Amino acid sequence: MAAKNDVSIPVSDNRSEQERNQVLSTEADFDYSQRGQWLRAAVLGATDGLVSVASLMMGIGAVKHDVRAMILTGFAGLVAGACSMAIGEFVSVYSQRDVESAQIKRENSDESEKEALPNPIQAATASAVAFMLGAIVPLLAAAFIADHKVRLGVVVATVSLALVFFGWTGAVLGRAPVVKSCFRILVGGWMAMGVTFGLTKWIGSAGL
């Protein structure tokens, strides 16, 4: 009898530990999936603002050495991009809300499910703010540098660091591979700035 008791106790404990691990694993997966939507929107908005405005500034910097022209171009891109992001997100989320609201009405669901519907105004505001936070980086990097070549180099370096930071943040919070995430976002940003700079330089030199 004593031997049987000695054998059965650890088996029971092992099963309990496995069950706890499964619960913890399920909760962790649920948390990360819930993070997905807002994390994607925040990182995408900030990255879009960073790359779009930096590319605009690099493009104008390819044909003009005036810091004022770069700053005005970047600021115009910040305002236009933030408005575009906000409007696009508002329309998209409102359409999603209409679809979900209609489904709730068909199912005669309770008020708690109606309160859980996505908020278009919050989504639009979050997208606009995220875009502006990203767009302000190249503007601040170029604002206080008089030398044209140094200014372009500082913008590229600052934007590169910010891209790595955004890639690292998204990967850590989403539990994705950090190196791959940083590499993808960094190369994409370099390509956008390089293509914009090169094409604008070519068009400007061709006299078009």
Rank of each mutant, 00 (worst) to 15 (best):
A142E: 02
D98M: 11
G88R: 10
P118D: 14
Q103P: 06
F183I: 15
L161M: 12
E17R: 10
A141K: 11
P10E: 12
V79D: 02
Q96S: 12
F197S: 13
N5G: 14
P10G: 06
S112F: 12
E115D: 12
V11R: 03
L117N: 07
T26H: 08
G194N: 09
M1F: 03
L39S: 13
C182G: 10
A54G: 00
G59N: 01
A162D: 01
V150N: 07
G88E: 10
A143G: 08
A28Q: 14
L133W: 02
G198K: 07
S25V: 15
T47H: 10
V43W: 00
Q34V: 15
K149M: 14
L56Q: 02
D48R: 04
N5S: 13
A192D: 01
L208R: 05
F166C: 02
E17L: 14
G45W: 01
F183S: 15
K114I: 12
M85S: 06
T200N: 04
L161A: 13
S16K: 12
E115V: 09
S181R: 15
R184S: 07
T125A: 15
W168M: 11
A82K: 09
M1I: 08
F197E: 07
A124G: 04
A130H: 01
S127K: 06
V99M: 03
D31N: 07
R15T: 14
A76S: 08
M58C: 07
V43N: 03
E115Y: 11
A157R: 02
G77N: 01
A130F: 08
S181T: 13
W190V: 06
E115R: 11
I9F: 04
R15K: 14
N108K: 13
G170Q: 10
Q22F: 12
A130R: 05
I203C: 06
Q103V: 15
L140N: 04
C182Q: 09
W202E: 12
D98V: 10
A76Y: 04
V154K: 02
S160K: 01
A135K: 01
L133N: 06
S12P: 05
A143R: 08
R20Y: 10
W202T: 15
Q96I: 13
T196H: 00
V164S: 07
G198Q: 03
V7I: 15
G74F: 00
A42Y: 04
T125V: 14
G59D: 00
W38M: 15
L50C: 02
E107M: 11
A206D: 11
V99A: 10
E107S: 15
I185S: 04
G174H: 08
Q34F: 14
G49D: 02
I71K: 01
A135Y: 03
L161K: 02
L173I: 05
T196I: 04
T158V: 15
N108F: 13
A142W: 02
G189T: 00
K105Y: 09
A80L: 04
L140P: 03
V23N: 06
T158H: 01
